[in-house]
């Protein structure tokens, strides 16, 4: 998907740079091999882009112009309409699953407009109405509270201790990060998938982690406001 966009827009001077938020590069590797990117495809095992740009879920993106200036802050970066939006939710599913699937239909409907905005920017550069001024970029970047700063520090401590082999200590710090910044899904999904992925398999996405974290992806998805709240929709 990103490779196709890169090929389309590279002649206009735009490059896609993908950044995988994965502790373990080996988990990202199979996806990268399939995509066969000709653009830079990087691994951010420390989730540094969370701090640097305000990334809090995936996919999210920032736009950077030729001078190294941000012209759009971190925002949801879907460029394909989610099939979940138009899915008929079968009536005979368990109630819980119906709730989750019904909420997924509320993912923001911005994929086509966002993709078109990228193409417009590639063509028109600073003349594109989607390229914001530095003041607008800062103002539209996500709020950062003292708790968010503390969550970043806790998440980093957890990663450090995880690498040191002290997983229990890591989980304690990650739980604190999750409590301080519940809307940051990268902190949660990254930590949870370590518990719910069987050895040697692809990263689990369902993330039923009741035994360790007392929650699951679907619990948190519903608790925090469902599909509309899950994505920071680009304001185009």
């Amino acid at each position: 998907m990103w490779q196709a966009l890169h090929e389309e827009l590279a002649p206009l001077g735009l490059s896609v740079v993908t950044v995988a938020l994965d502790f373990d590069p080996a988990k990202a590797r199979p996806w990268i091999d399939v995509a066969a990117p000709t653009h830079p495809s990087l691994i951010d095992s420390e989730h540094r882009v969370d701090e640097l740009f305000g990334i809090s879920n995936v996919p999210m993106a920032v736009w950077i112009d030729e001078t190294g200036t941000l012209v759009r802050p971190a925002e949801g970066a879907a460029i394909q309409v989610s099939p979940l939006r138009s899915m008929e939710v079968p009536a005979d599913l368990p109630e819980r699953m119906r709730q989750v699937l019904t909420e997924m239909k509320n993912f923001p409907d911005t994929a086509e407009a966002y993709r078109a905005a990228i193409v417009d920017w590639a063509n028109r550069g600073a003349e594109s109405p989607y390229a914001l001024t530095p003041e607008e970029v800062i103002e539209r970047s996500q709020p950062r509270s003292a708790d968010h700063s503390r969550a970043a520090a806790c998440f980093e401590l957890g990663h450090h201790l995880h690498l040191q082999g002290d997983h229990d200590a890591a989980v304690a710090w990650w739980k604190e990060a999750h409590a301080l910044f519940p809307e940051n899904w990268t902190y949660k999904r990254q930590a949870w998938t370590l518990e719910s992925t069987p050895e040697g398999e692809d990263s689990d996405k369902a993330q039923e982690v009741q035994d360790v974290y007392g929650t699951s992806w679907s619990d948190e998805f519903l608790r925090l406001g469902g599909g509309a709240a899950y994505v920071i929709a680009p304001d185009l």
Partner: peptide, 15 residues
């Protein structure tokens, strides 16, 4: 290293 080009920097993950 991308100076001189527009960059769409996209965060994704295996999870």
């Amino acid at each position: 290293a991308m100076h001189g080009r527009k960059v769409l920097l996209v965060a994704w993950a295996s999870w």
